[in-house]
Structures are given as structure tokens and as C-alpha cells.
Amino acid sequence: MSALRVYVEGIGLWSPQLADFAALRSLLAGATPAPPPARPAAARLPPNERRRAPESVLLAVEVAGQAVAMSGRDAAALACVFASSHGDQPITDYMCATLAQAPAELSPIRFHNSVHNAAVGYWTIATDCHAPSTAVAAQRASFGAGLLEAVSQVLAEQRAVLLVCSDTGGSGPLADITHCRQPFGCALVLTPQRSDATLARLDLALTPARPDSALDEPLAGWRDDNPSAAGLPLLALLARAEGHCQLAAAATLGLQIDMDHA
């Protein structure tokens, strides 16, 4: 099978240590970037939504907004693939705790914010985007599986796609199960053709399952602390001139990615 070739036009990133992709670049160059404020700014949301939005939505909208701004594209025209291993864990914790004690008191707003596609729903509303949008999950392989889905949309539909992969930190008893110790989100704008805004070219190929590319600290620890940070090998690669990395696309499937700035 020939490689799947797509182009990167925008990159978004947010974690408690990294405000954006430039901060990752600076870290990899040996500097110590200033950490962002505790709450993602999520400037693409209208102010009233920004005040009320749950953490998962703020995180996803923040990285989506960064990537789209870098690409210079109109968000309304981008198909959306939002991946997350666990969705909004504080809401899941709230729902399960409330249902165990006083089910009739469940909050209607938190219930409709609990759907896995809440973040992409808020994003499409905020950007007046009528393009196809989806929300996906694949446990620890959510980034790779989401990337594969985004690439298949880019190539099969010949359109630009916004990929977001984000997970909140764990909350309550659930946190011991998900082992999410901090939030992490990242985003890419992917296109079928090279343009003036192209930052990198990616050639992807499916492989049998192999270990994910190794990372140095502190990136390795961040990856252990959040499944969405499985995208870090690719993000680190994008901060360099060229190279390749290996990610999981499913429990039994790998994704080899060759990156070039040409």
C-alpha cells in the first residue's frame, strides 16, 4: 500500500506546562517556557459560553483555535475529528456520584455536556461550522486512531480537516482507573495539497503494532500522565527539520509517520 500523504498547516498544544506549540519548540531547544494560566483561554468561545463551559470543552477549543489560527483557514470550512480517550472525566465523576446518591437531582446541563461530542459540538457552534464533525475514542491509541480517521477524511473527501486530541485530568474514584494525572490537548490542521501555509509533509503507513517512539523527559512522563499526550512524538518531530516516528493506531496496529518540511 502506498503511503498516505497529507500536509500540516497548523499545530495547537496545551498542557499545564506548555501554552502552545512554540513553548514545546522552546523546551526542546533547551529553554524553560513560562507555563500558561491554569485555565485554557479558549478564546474562540463566546464569553458567556467560556464562563460556563466544562474543562474538556475549554481544552479542546483552546488547541483547536491555536491550530486553525496558525493555518489561517476559515474554521467554518474545516471538517472536525475530535478524539479523546475518556471524555470529560470531572463530568463522568459527577454523574456517577450523583446517580449513586440522588439520581433525580442530575443536572440537565451536565448531562448534555457529558456526551463525547460535546467539545466538537461547542466548537462547531462557536465557529458556525456546518461541515461534518465527529468524536472518536480508542483508549491509549486515541491520538493515532484519530489521526488515521482525520487522514482518511483528508484523502477520501479531498478536504482540509481539523484534528483535536485531548483529555482532562482524572477526578474522584475514576482517576485511579484512568490514571490521567494532568490535562493534555493537541490539534493539527491537515490538508490534501501543499499550500503557502504548509508547515510539514507527513507520509503515513499502517504497520503491525510496535512500541511507540521513545521520548526524553519530561515528555515521557507527560505521556504516562495523559493518553492524549501519545501524540507527543509527532509534535516533537514537527518541531524539528525532519524524521520519523511510530504511534499506536489500535491495540494491534501501528502507524509509521515520516515527516519532512519540504
Binding site: V136, A137, E149, A250, T252, L253
Partner: peptide, 11 residues
């Protein structure tokens, strides 16, 4: 099965 494996969760 060992091919692509994805959960789609759009309500």
C-alpha cells in the same frame, strides 16, 4: 480483528 479499530461517539 487487527485492523483499524475506532469508537465513534457522536451521541
Amino acid at each position: 480483528l487487527e485492523g483499524p479499530c475506532l469508537t465513534i461517539s457522536t451521541a
